[in-house]
Amino acid sequence: MDSPHGAAVKAEGFGLKGPRGWVFREVGIDAAPGSLIALEGPSGSGRTCLLLALTGRMKATEGHAEIGRHRLPKKMAAVRRITALGPVPGVNDLDQSLTVAEQLREGAMLQRRYDAPLRTLLRPRGDRRATARTRINEALAAVGMDPATLPKGERTSVRDLERLEAVRLSVAIALLGGPRLLALDDLDLKLSDAERAEAWALLRSVADRGTTVLAVCSEAPEGVTVLRTGAAAPAQPRTGRHTGKTAPARPAAAGTGGPKITWGLPPGNDTDPAAPAPAPAPARPEPEKPGPEAESAEPRRDEPAAEPAEPAAEPATRTGTDNDEDEKGADDALAETGRA
């Protein structure tokens, strides 16, 4: 397999803002081709989003970066063509139902179909298979993986692989396309100290071949360029053979220098965390409820005074004296009209 020339990684004021606030911002880096870069920090600090943004898989919202000679976020498609993802959980997971041989053949087929020149598709099928087999063997040799040492050889199921062997397989598939930048996420996840040392030795060997490597981890070893996420960056990064230059120190909120990453604020908070919190609004006094004395007070002026109650109606049944008087009154009225 040809040794590709690695891509330089540069960024200035690089940032990404999501609907819940800043994921990362003010990222600055200047790494030479063939560098081994460790993106170090705790889980949830935005390190995976930065990895995807630097490989053209996620669009940044401020600043710019350059991968090779391709400027982000404008040339995302061009950056994707020269970069490859190793293991990134939730993005390009291995198919647990396939065998190692099937997974490798699938990776070679996809690379040939989408990344290879059109003329390669016109070659005879036998030639294409032979070329794919050669590239697979070279990729396996580059990551130090020998399928013959697996329990069932190439017929070993992917789900039966140890964590370190799964990492080797993912990196081998990524190298089939000859990328200039290789990016990996959660490199040291579920690895022992000895396995972690082997994984970093693997990435260092890939960088020695000329490919720039960017790896997300919780703790980076000595001899690599380190960008620390989530917390304050160290005054001077740990550098090794393929580190390249780091960005000059710029003033930051935390007062740090070197390669600087100022990470996003907590979800839902777009303000400066160092700013004092606003004073709470004074509580409005509640109106006092009228007591019994107020209810017995004089009526309000805007309400009309209550009218006096009407006298009760007289009962319909009267005594005998009253009836006699009524009859005499009727006779007198008839006499006046001449009807008596």
Rank of each mutant, 00 (worst) to 15 (best):
H5G: 12
V9Q: 06
G15T: 05
G15I: 08
L16V: 09
G21R: 12
F24C: 05
R25F: 04
R25C: 08
I29F: 05
G41H: 03
G41T: 06
G41F: 06
G41P: 05
G46K: 09
G46C: 11
C49V: 13
L51F: 10
L52Q: 08
L54I: 11
E62Q: 15
A65E: 01
E66M: 15
I67L: 09
R71M: 11
M76W: 06
V79S: 06
R80I: 06
T83P: 05
L85S: 05
G86S: 08
V88L: 12
G90E: 03
D93A: 10
S97M: 11
V100N: 03
A101I: 14
R105S: 06
R112N: 02
R112T: 00
L121F: 06
R125N: 00
R125E: 02
R125F: 01
R129S: 03
A130I: 00
T134I: 06
E138A: 14
G144H: 07
G144N: 07
G144S: 07
M145I: 07
T149G: 12
R155F: 03
V158H: 06
V158G: 06
L161K: 04
L161D: 00
E165S: 10
L169F: 04
A174I: 10
G178F: 02
R180V: 03
R180P: 02
L182I: 04
A183E: 00
D186E: 14
D188M: 11
L191G: 02
L191D: 00
L191Q: 04
S192M: 09
E195H: 07
A201S: 04
G210T: 04
T211N: 08
L214T: 01
C217Y: 00
E222D: 14
V226A: 01
T229L: 15
R238L: 15
A247Q: 04
A253N: 04
A253C: 04
T256C: 11
G257N: 01
G258K: 11
P259F: 08
W263K: 03
P267D: 09
D272I: 13
P273E: 02
A283T: 14
P290D: 07
P292I: 15
E298H: 02
D302N: 13
A305Q: 10
A306L: 15
E307M: 12
P308C: 08
A313Y: 07
A313P: 15
E314M: 05
A316K: 14
A316H: 07
G320M: 11
N323S: 14
N323Q: 15
K328F: 13
K328R: 13
G329S: 12
D331T: 05
A333H: 08
E336C: 02
T337S: 11
